[in-house]
Amino acid sequence: MALTEDPGKPRNLAERVQRVQDAVYSAIFHNYVWQSIFRSGYPNTPRNQMLVVATNIFLHLHPTRIHRTHVKITHTYCLGGLTFFMFLILTVTGVLLMFYYVPSVDSAYQDIAALETNVKFGLLMRNMHRWTAHAMVILVFLHMMRVFYTGAYKPPREFNWVVGVILLVLTLVLSFTGYLLPWDQLALWAVTVGHGIGGSAPFFGDETQLIVFGGFEVGPSTLIRFYTLHVIALPLIAAVFMAVHFWRIRRDGGMARPL
């Protein structure tokens, strides 16, 4: 009714501005293309707000409603989410680094050095990749502490805690495999320490060195192994476990709260 009614001439400036706003709003959010992408309108009503979360694959990681205490920053400090966000930044910056990096002992170091000086924003991308990688390791530990001290591993979330422990290991191994790639003195000798530690495994020491590091010393075969693990195998595995982790949070009835 109200919509079809002719509104008549605007009576004052405020009403005129309001009309323009409405027109722009509906041109943006009610047009054919927008609605082909986002099925719901702009999330400005409770209905649309729930629809946008339920129909968007990225937001769909969330439930549509959440308990009041869980949006308090001091409950999670966003630590799990930020760990995931670091993973996303690392993926983006990592792909950019891959454009310039060839994983061979002959070229790896030069590639990184050239990336820093000859490539626009190359140094920035490398720095971002490095610092967010450290941040991810710190954040995953803090997240684990948050989960532990809020008792959120208790039933029915036992298994998601175990998935978390696996993600912790994956994060450390991702970081460690990346450490070798610049092929500088820091990289080589840090990984050599790790190589020694791997070799001290009872009964399987030699096997660990051969299979994981590709030999009895850190060399070309270690580099290509670590590269492959770092850029494809481990990120994929981590992504799968993260998917399980997030799925389970929803399946286990959302985040833990007092009984």
């Binding site: 999330p43 409770p46 707000q49 729930m50 946008v52 979360v53 937001l59 969330h62 439930p63 549509t64 409603r65 959440i66 308990h67 009041r68 869980h70 949006v71 920053i73 966003c78």
Partner: peptide
Amino acid sequence: EEVLVWPDLVFV
């Protein structure tokens, strides 16, 4: 006791 994820959580 519940709030909507959009905007309350997505904003944070």
